[in-house]
């Protein structure tokens, strides 16, 4: 849209922009040149590879659903209310964005682990989280949640609340306003946030390996499988990396039209 108005960019902008793009794209090309194409099919369809891919897709989908379920209310509270300590709370909620994932994994371990803060309560209830697929979903949700909250809160603030105020004065209940006005208005932001969360969950490594462990079909997601294969069979690691890149590109591609509408 902006381009059509004929405001041209200063020419020097293109030099760092091209350097930046090369910096990102060149390693991707390097990975493609390393792929052993004659065995590519065998490498990505082995039992362990398929188990890892399937587990990654399932857990990332579950984490995204969780992120939406708890992230939408969080973004609403942060964007539409004001209370003492809100600024601090926002910073804390967004912390996993900048925290090394391994630290997130340790924090989860000290909370939900057998000897963690809630460990005793969970044991009484006969729930064991460590080494289960649930632990993977929790680790992914922990690191992906801020992506949804940030992008949705931004959309909520940009959309403003004029329409919501009008609807409320016309007698709509808060729930009706949320369902009929707020949600449709911020839908592109919500979808973009959900896609970002999914992508982040798909790439999650540090928190998962620290908190959930690594077992084929149960906790060994695609990034963990790549890290492990790199030890013994670098060709398999490269092939799986390419699969992860392709899935990530597809996911971002799906989100693209929605974002353009913003």
């Amino acid at each position: 849209m902006g381009r059509d108005r004929g405001v041209s960019l200063p020419r020097w902008v293109f030099v760092p922009a091209v350097i930046g793009a090369t910096f990102v794209v060149l390693p991707l090309i390097a990975i493609i040149t390393k792929v052993d194409w004659s065995h590519f099919g065998d490498l990505i369809t082995s039992d362990s590879s398929r188990a890892a891919l399937w587990l990654s897709l399932r857990t990332s989908a579950a984490s995204t659903v969780l992120c939406v379920a708890i992230g939408v209310p969080m973004a609403l509270v942060l964007a539409r209310t004001s209370f003492p300590g809100q600024r601090l709370l926002r910073s804390l909620v967004l912390l996993p964005l900048v925290l090394p994932p391994v630290v997130g994994g340790l924090a989860l371990l000290y909370t939900f682990g057998r000897r963690g803060l809630l460990g005793h309560v969970l044991e009484v209830m006969n729930i064991q989280i460590a080494f289960s697929t649930i632990a993977v979903v929790m680790a992914q949700t922990f690191v992906a949640l801020p992506f949804l909250v940030v992008s949705l809160e931004g959309s909520l603030r940009t959309a403003g609340h004029r329409y919501e105020v009008v609807a409320a004065t016309l007698g709509a209940s808060p729930s009706t306003v949320f369902r009929r006005i707020t949600l449709p208005l911020v839908m592109p932001g919500l979808l973009a946030g959900a896609v970002l969360s999914f992508a982040r969950a798909l790439g999650e490594f540090g928190a998962t390996i620290t908190f959930a462990g690594s077992l084929q079909g149960v906790t060994r997601t695609l990034p963990l499988e790549i890290y492990l294969q790199r030890e013994e069979d670098p060709n398999a690691a490269v092939a799986l990396s390419l699969v992860l890149v392709v899935v990530a590109v597809l996911v971002i591609g799906l989100a693209r039209p929605e974002r353009a509408r913003l």
Binding site: F131, G213, S214, L215, T219, R220, L224, Y227, L228, E231
Partner: peptide, 8 residues
């Protein structure tokens, strides 16, 4: 052996 996790 039936481990609950096989670490890296």
């Amino acid at each position: 052996l039936a481990p609950v996790s096989e670490e890296e």
